[in-house]
Amino acid sequence: MERSTIDFWVGIFVVGGIAALVMLAMKVGNLGTYNVADTYQVHAYFSNIGGLKPKASIKSAGVLVGRVTEITLDTTRYEAKVVMNLDKRYQFPKDTFANILTSGLLGEQYIGLMPGGDDQMLTNGEQLKKTQSAMVLEDLIGKFLYSKAEEPTKQGK
């Protein structure tokens, strides 16, 4: 086969392959959508984070506004410290309420922000004071079993 035909097809192959990679990065992955935006950092303490993981999304009114960057255990309070990066475009009041939620019944966990009424806005490095921990399935089942266990004793007597 002619050298130029080979060059042509190999060119098409390589360009197509790189285009596929770029498409995966931009359209499928999050490279094109989020990483470029400017962010500011806040943190919050939760008594239990359930299945929350780094990189989990942070949403307000269902809109993605940031991501969890770091989760550690604070050994002075024995609570989980969750550091999050929020998009600079979205400012929240100081008394914003952070809540660990689950998307769908078995979906992954994320942090939902419910803005309060404070006039002052959160700035870099500040703490979200009001939090609600994750619902842990074992606790729910435990409560349920406990209440169930009480029923037959009542009826038995």
């Binding site: 990679l21 995966l24 990065a25 359209k27 499928v28 992955g29 999050n30 490279l31 094109g32 959508t33 990483n35 990189k55 999304s57 993605l64 992954e108």
Partner: peptide, 19 residues
């Protein structure tokens, strides 16, 4: 379909590891 995909697929974690 697209937005959930973009939210869940991480460039370094998923795409780069695949490469």
């Amino acid at each position: 379909f697209w937005s959930q995909m973009q939210a869940a697929v991480d460039f370094r974690e998923d795409i780069l590891n695949g490469v």
